[in-house]
Write a protein that binds this DNA or RNA. Structure first.
Length: 740
DNA sequence: CAGTGAGCGAGCTTCCGCTTGACTT
């Protein structure tokens, strides 16, 4: 709440972006200053496809948003009695634009200063206030260019998806490459060819017991999981041990002891981690705590509002000097004098697109070891942040990794078998002492060349190679951050928006699985707009924006190259749109083709389908398989790597008429086929057919358990609805989907 | 959740990046 008392005679109105910063800065500046906030952007270009006049110098007009009008009205009142206006918005591109728009909409008659706080500490704030500058017009120009480019991308490309795939779909500079990565990964999984191999292990008869693995067989390397490519082919010069050979070898090895034939020592070093930035924290929240990006970001906001941590949306690992000192002191207090490097560490962002307007995520007060409400997301995340902050100032973890080679000769064919085992002795635990990820390295008994190692047993384990893992929220955020796509304030919203339309996860799992719709959309993007979904698109754009900041290019140059003319790297968007209209017709080209069906003698294809209204009024996408005039619906939330050619062919000829298989409690039990696959119905009750049962052959006995304990009805978490229940006009913040 | 894919055409959808509340439980 802002007070409406008349400002003091020589009051200066200081405007920041975040209301939660106001109190802190007010306290630092004291009387004579009134601190207020814009609550982020308050003006924007209209949400209409024709908001940008591409014919006339890409002219746009920023207008106040509904909430923004109220903010500006309030700031105007405060400005009334002020003698100067201080623009203290964030020291990044968007912050410069907000400062510029403040001048445009407030129309101040008093002197205007621009200050940039490096951190919200008394020293940093006072120093910034003492060194005011002016608004950087070229930074504003770069911000406007970014805004208009994103608008053109989103609002001119999305309609192409409506005509080619289905209404309501979306494309954008950030979401389209993100979707591309998820879909591409799924394709890699579909094309992946598994390979089988065995590992042969020796369990020692020593104390402590250790396990060594067969590395070479008669001088030839034995293949492990990393030695196969995606086609299941083995790298050259490697040997695959199959089950027959493995069983035979183990039998012939008997219990013959090994002789140590080599010992190799290597230095071991793990660098102390950088302090958290938003993206790395969200990754750890997901990976280490199992907290989703949305909940994690919300917890960060809570911690910030309570004054426990620094600003929660940051791309800089830099920490203010006093905080570095406090972190070192905390480390020394816990682990003694020798646990920190002589010189304090200072970190800069690795990503060259980082704007570093805020400090790293760190506790505001290092002596606050924990926050109240133990066990909550906020408390657990605070603990992560506290530990990481201390860890970032501690020594690297160092030690020695020892690899021991042991040799024996198998009976019979007398192959020479070399087994190896590695162990690491940590000499300096360094930061690991505080982050707690001190993985217990297996201890090895002291061994020397020539020693005989008694054997407990030989054995073997069959393995198959695994396709590349699907992205999770954590790994996708990491990939986006590394490629400079998206900003700290947008990672969590991007994940939410992908989940709303294009990806889903199995219950209780984190892997992001693209929907059929996602494949259809990505196909259009690849066929018609490939250059725009390239992972380098954003970094190329950032290079152009840098040229604007450096005065080497202008707003019209960059947008004209993007939209009208194209340049070396970008084909003109207007041209792509026009060409794309003739280039790709989804009625001709299906989402996927499986070849000619051997019985139906027509091409089997997967189509995205249009949306149908479900019982509860939501518009649901309905993809289907088609072959001639036969169609079979498939859920949008399908794991595409299960749609193998054989499975598709089978689905197309499957008898899908309902059949009665028994009776339960006086009611007929039937297997029926719905749009989401087979299900069991008895009376009014319904249960999805378990995945592992053969739909055609399932007997009454097999589904009996289902009848007694019907599974919980699945929460309709809208894997991918195009239908929205939320109405969204103007730039009012997104509301969560209403529960039905 | 649990049976639709024609054709016509009205009226609608959609971006990224800043930032909080105001609803409940």
């Amino acid at each position: 709440m802002k007070t409406r008392t008349a400002p003091a005679a020589s009051a200066s109105l200081v405007i920041v972006e975040s209301p939660t910063k106001v109190a802190t800065i007010q306290k630092i500046l004291g009387a004579g200053h009134t601190v207020a906030s814009t609550k982020g952007h308050f003006a924007d270009i209209p949400e209409r496809g024709d908001a940008v006049d591409t014919e006339n110098g890409f002219a746009v007009r920023y207008r106040l948003t509904e909430k923004g009008a109220a903010v500006i009205a309030e700031l105007r009142d405060l400005l009334d009695g002020a003698t100067e206006l201080v623009l203290a918005t964030d020291a990044d591109r968007e912050g410069e634009m907000i400062a510029h728009l403040l001048v445009e909409f407030l129309e101040p008659t008093v002197p205007v200063k621009r200050v940039r706080f490096g951190a919200i500490t008394p020293d940093a704030v006072r120093e910034a206030m003492a060194n005011p500058t002016a608004i950087d017009a070229s930074l504003v120009e770069a911000a406007r260019t970014r805004r208009v480019l994103d608008h053109l991308f989103g609002f001119r490309v999305s309609p192409e998806l409506w005509s080619k795939v289905r209404t309501g779909l979306s494309a954008g500079r950030v979401q389209s490459p993100a979707l591309r990565m998820v879909v591409e990964r799924e394709r890699e999984r579909m094309d992946f060819i598994k390979a089988s191999y065995c590992s042969i292990e020796m369990t020692s008869g020593t104390d402590p017991v250790f396990e060594a693995v067969l590395r070479t067989l008669d001088g030839t390397q034995v293949a492990g999981s990393g030695d196969f490519d995606e086609h299941g082919e083995i790298s050259r010069g490697m040997r695959v041990v199959d089950e027959v050979l493995a069983g035979d070898l183990v039998a012939r090895l008997g219990a013959s002891p090994l002789t140590v034939t080599g010992i190799e020592n290597r230095d071991y070093r793990r660098r102390a981690p950088l302090p958290y930035i938003t993206s790395s924290l969200l990754q750890d929240a997901v990976n280490r705590l199992g907290i989703g990006s949305k909940a994690a970001q919300a917890a960060l906001n809570t911690l910030f509002a309570a004054g426990h941590i620094t600003y929660p949306r940051t791309d800089s690992p830099h920490i203010a000097p006093q905080a570095v000192a406090a972190a070192r002191a905390a480390a020394i207090q816990l682990f003694g004098d020798g646990c920190v490097p002589e010189k304090a560490r200072h970190h800069r962002a690795k990503n060259r697109n980082a704007q570093e307007a805020h400090e790293a995520l760190r506790p505001t007060v290092m002596s606050r070891r924990e926050v109240k409400s133990a066990g909550t997301n906020a408390a657990r995340i605070y603990d992560l942040i506290w530990r990481r902050t201390v860890a970032s100032q501690m020594l690297d973890a160092t030690g020695t990794t020892t690899t021991v080679s042991m040799t024996t000769v198998a009976a019979g064919k007398r192959e020479t078998c070399v087994f190896t085992v590695s162990g690491t002795v940590i000499e300096v635990p360094g930061f690991r002492a505080v982050t707690g990820d001190d993985r217990g390295e297996p201890a090895l008994p002291p061994l020397a060349v020539g020693d005989v190692v008694p054997v407990g047993a030989f054995g073997f384990t069959p393995h198959t190679t695994k396709p590349p893992a699907r992205y999770t929220e954590a790994s996708l955020i990491k990939a986006l951050e590394e490629k400079g796509i998206g900003r700290p304030s947008t990672y969590a919203p991007i994940m939410a928006s992908l989940k709303e339309r294009y990806v889903w996860s199995r219950r209780g799992e984190r892997a992001l699985i693209p929907t059929v719709t996602a494949f259809a959309v990505d196909q259009v993007m690849q066929k018609c707009f490939a250059a725009l979904t390239h992972e380098k698109f954003t970094s190329t754009m950032e290079d152009r924006l840098t040229e604007i900041v450096e005065g080497k290019a202008g707003y019209v140059d960059v947008l004209s190259a993007f939209y009208l003319e194209g340049d070396g790297t970008w084909p003109a968007l207007s041209r792509l749109i026009e060409d794309g209209r003739n280039l790709f017709d989804p009625r001709v080209t299906p989402v996927m083709s499986f070849g000619v069906h051997p019985e139906l003698s027509e091409e089997a294809v997967l189509r995205a389908g249009k949306a149908f209204k479900s019982r509860n009024g939501a518009w649901m996408p309905r993809p289907y398989l088609a072959c001639g005039d036969r169609t079979v619906p498939v859920p949008d939330a399908t794991e595409m790597d299960t749609l193998t050619r054989a499975h598709v062919f089978e689905l197309l000829v499957q008898d899908r008429s309902p059949r009665t298989i028994g009776e339960h409690g006086g009611r007929e039990v039937r297997i029926e086929f719905g749009v989401y696959g087979a299900y069991v119905r008895w009376g009014g009750e319904i249960a999805r057919m378990p995945r592992d049962l053969d739909v055609l052959a399932a007997s009454f006995e097999e589904i009996r358990g289902l009848l007694d304990n019907p599974p919980e009805p699945k929460a309709r978490k809208a894997a991918a609805g195009t239908g929205r229940t939320r109405a969204r006009k103007s730039s009012v913040a997104r509301k969560p989907r209403k529960k039905r």
